[in-house]
Amino acid sequence: MPLFVSQGRYTEGAIKAMLAKPEDRTAAVAKLVDRAGGKLIAFYLLFGEYDWMIVYEAPSGQEAAAIMLAAVGAGAITNTKTMLAMSGAEAQAAFELGRALGAEHGVPGPSRAGRP
């Protein structure tokens, strides 16, 4: 299953609510990911540009997007970004495929006139 990393920020309202009633959100995040057919690997709070980060498996990018859409739609998070993460072996395979595709694709220019 593909691995994804998502990061985001809490809204001011969410921070106020968590200060009023602190809670560990790991189980809630795991349940959301699970409902989309995925598996939560890790959930971290961060100090810096982002407030939180999750690492999770999802069946595809569609489910990863749905997880984030549901979370953002709840109104407690904002400024999210999601990235596909690959192992070293997966990255090597991607580079090998990219090399093969690049050799066939070529570079635009006068020497390739009339070719797509």
Rank of each mutant, 00 (worst) to 15 (best):
K31G: 02
R99F: 05
I77Q: 12
A93Y: 04
G61K: 15
G13C: 04
R25D: 02
G88L: 09
L45M: 04
L46P: 13
I77K: 12
Q7C: 04
A66D: 07
S6E: 10
T82H: 06
F4N: 08
E63K: 01
K16C: 07
K31T: 00
G37N: 03
A27N: 09
A74P: 00
W52A: 14
R99S: 08
R112Q: 12
G37F: 01
L19H: 03
R115V: 02
G98D: 14
Q62P: 01
G114S: 01
M18G: 03
H105L: 06
I77P: 03
L45K: 10
A100E: 15
E90I: 03
E96K: 14
V29T: 02
G102I: 06
I41N: 15
M53W: 05
L40I: 01
V55L: 05
T80V: 09
E23R: 15
T82N: 12
A42E: 13
I67S: 00
I54K: 09
E96C: 00
A91I: 01
T11R: 08
M86K: 15
W52Y: 15
K21I: 07
N79R: 13
T78M: 12
A100Q: 11
M68C: 05
V72I: 13
I77L: 02
Y44D: 13
A14P: 02
V72N: 08
A65Q: 10
Y50T: 15
A89T: 05
L3K: 10
I77R: 06
P108V: 14
H105Q: 14
A66H: 08
D51C: 13
M1G: 06
R25F: 01
G106R: 04
D34L: 04
T26L: 06
P116M: 11
A20Y: 01
S6C: 14
P2G: 03
A27R: 06
M83Y: 07
L3H: 02
E63S: 07
A85P: 03
G75H: 15
A100P: 01
E90Q: 12
A89N: 09
I77D: 09
T78N: 12
L3P: 00
